[in-house]
């Protein structure tokens, strides 16, 4: 595992007890911590890519992490075009990345 959470027990900031949450990403369960964004949950689980690009079908995930680049957009609970790095994750969130916006013609 390469991308990962900072280990809770040894984190110098002295975090309180984290509240685990589970979201679904394209059908798979991913576990994170309450307070993380959707992108944070996925990256902490070493999921670096969660959609494919419209024209070339290339894998993409987060790039700028601060809402500028729109690389990380997902559908959340049926809501389209949500920047995963800007949306706090809630337990039970269903994240889908229809290759959709996508797969139209060139």
């Amino acid at each position: 595992m390469v991308a990962r959470p900072v280990p809770f027990a040894t984190d110098p900031i002295g975090p309180g007890e984290p509240t685990p949450i589970t979201i679904t990403v394209n059908g798979s369960s991913v576990t994170g911590v309450l307070g993380q964004t959707l992108a944070g949950v996925m990256i902490a689980a070493d999921v670096l890519a969660w959609r494919t690009t419209r024209r070339r079908g290339r894998p993409r995930g987060a790039f700028c992490g601060i809402g500028v680049c729109f690389d990380c957009v997902v559908d959340v609970n049926g809501q389209r075009d949500v920047r995963a790095c800007q949306r706090r994750a809630a337990s039970g969130d269903v994240v889908e990345t229809p290759t959709s916006a996508a797969s139209g013609d060139q």
Binding site: V2, G40, R60, C64, I66
Partner: peptide, 26 residues
Amino acid sequence: WDLPGVFTAGGAQALAKGERVVVGER
């Protein structure tokens, strides 16, 4: 630079400070 695992410097720092997530090992 469009490969997953490439981040802006600020993005990697935001994940570290605002999420306590590190983007990689090496």
